[in-house]
C-alpha cells in the first residue's frame, strides 16, 4: 500500500479523539471531593461519638472501604467511576474496588485459585510499589537523621 507506517501513525493520532480531559477533571474534582467531604463528616461524627484520635483514624477509612465494597457488590461503583474517573480511583475507595472487583469476577475459578489468587491482580502492583516507596522514604529519612 502507498501509505507508510510513519504517515499512518500520524494519521491515527489525528483521527483518534483524545479523552475529554477538562470534563474528566471537573467530575473527578467534584466526586472525589464529595468522597473526601464524606470522610471529613465521618471524622467529625466519630469524634462526637467519643472515639479517640487513633480510633477515628481507623474508623474513617474502614467505613469508606466498607461503602466502596458495598457499592462494588451492588454493581454501582463502576457506573459512578465511569463518570468520576480519578475521583473514585484516588481515594481509598478506588483501592477497595480494585481488590473486590477481581475477587467477584474470578469466583467462578474457585475460592483458592480464583478469589485467592486473583484478588490482588490489580491492587498487587500498588502494594509492591507503595511499600517500596515507603522503604525508600524511610531509608532517606533515617540517613538524614544521622546528621
Amino acid at each position: 500500500m502507498q501509505m507508510t507506517k510513519q504517515e499512518y501513525s500520524k494519521l491515527v493520532d489525528k483521527k483518534s479523539p483524545p479523552s475529554k480531559k477538562l470534563k474528566n477533571c471537573i467530575f473527578a474534582f467534584l466526586i472525589g471531593g464529595a468522597i473526601c467531604t464524606l470522610g471529613q463528616l465521618l471524622m467529625l461524627l466519630y469524634e462526637k461519638a467519643g472515639l479517640s484520635e487513633t480510633q477515628v483514624k481507623m474508623a474513617v477509612p474502614v467505613t469508606l472501604i466498607f461503602l466502596a465494597c458495598v457499592a462494588t457488590g451492588f454493581k454501582v461503583f463502576d457506573s459512578i467511576a465511569l463518570i468520576a474517573g480519578a475521583g473514585t480511583l484516588v481515594p481509598i475507595t478506588g483501592f477497595a474496588n480494585a481488590v473486590l472487583s477481581p475477587a467477584i469476577e474470578f469466583k467462578s475459578e474457585g475460592h483458592v485459585m480464583g478469589i485467592g489468587a486473583k484478588m490482588f491482580s490489580i491492587a498487587g502492583p500498588v502494594l509492591v510499589f507503595g511499600l517500596t516507596a515507603g522503604v525508600v522514604y524511610g531509608l532517606v529519612l533515617s540517613i538524614f537523621r544521622l546528621f
Binding site: G73, F77, A98, E105
Partner: peptide
Amino acid sequence: QPLEYGGQRPP
C-alpha cells in the same frame, strides 16, 4: 479488567 472495576474507557 474485571466487570465491576471502576475505570474509564478511552473514546
